[in-house]
Design a protein around this nucleic acid. Structure first.
Length: 207
DNA sequence: TGCAAACCATAAC
DNA sequence: GTTATGGTTTGCA
């Protein structure tokens, strides 16, 4: 039985679906309704569920962690995430994605290089991510430093990156099962988008 | 810049 | 099985 909890923390709604001290699905959003809808969308389709008003201790802790991640705090705590029901490739991509450190981003292509497959396949796995923002799919962007897509909306993704800005300036390589995942500072994307906005306003000015 | 083709795992049929 | 569909990338005009 999937136990579903939703709670408002600091103005934002967070939700978890769990069973046997394992997290199956998470969600966040501006209202309770959308959070619950997302949870039911991403939950294994044939799993019976029940929505609870009072979070269990386990769920309460999970909700707090979600909120901390949302606020771009450095969260070291990790959870038992139930990934067994996911396709093997999706699981690999999500695990690699969860290794991207706070303040850094990876491109769809660099993840594809690290785990195999193609950038599009990585994008598909991101879209299927049941664990936002525990698995930080908002830290995956296009290779040209534009944002790409995001289930919760691009503005949400952009806001995340602004909050996660940490002032790093150099590339890093993360070891993912012996293969390297290249990551770069959030600033690269923020600067690139800033420049492109400047460029578009300049070209408008010239006309 | 803009467009077309290659990319490859999923889900739907 | 087969097809359609992407949260992409790359090359070429």
């Amino acid at each position: 039985m999937l136990e579903i909890y939703a709670q408002k923390i600091n103005g934002m709604w967070f939700g978890v679906g769990c069973e046997n001290q394992q997290v199956f699905v998470t969600s966040f959003g501006c209202c309770e309704q959308s959070v619950l809808k997302n949870i039911l969308n991403k939950a294994p389709f044939n799993m019976p569920f029940q929505v609870f008003m009072e979070p269990s201790a386990f769920a309460k802790n999970a909700l707090d962690v979600l909120s901390n991640i949302y606020e771009a705090k450095d969260v070291s705590e990790s959870f038992p995430l139930a990934m067994n029901h996911l396709p093997a490739y999706t699981e690999k991509v999500l695990k690699a994605t969860s290794m991207i450190p706070l303040g850094y981003l990876a491109s769809y292509g660099s993840i594809a290089k690290a785990v195999g497959g193609s950038p599009r396949a990585v994008g598909n796995a991101m879209a299927a991510n049941p664990f936002p923002p525990i698995v930080p799919c908002h830290r995956v962007v296009k290779s040209d430093f534009t944002l790409g897509g995001y289930g919760g909306g691009l503005d949400v993704k952009g806001d995340f990156l602004l909050r996660e800005k940490r002032g790093f300036s150099s590339l890093r390589k993360i070891d993912v099962n012996g293969r390297f995942l290249e990551v770069f500072p959030v600033e690269f994307v923020l600067n690139a988008n800033h420049k492109s906005m400047q460029a578009s306003t300049q070209s408008k000015g010239k006309q």
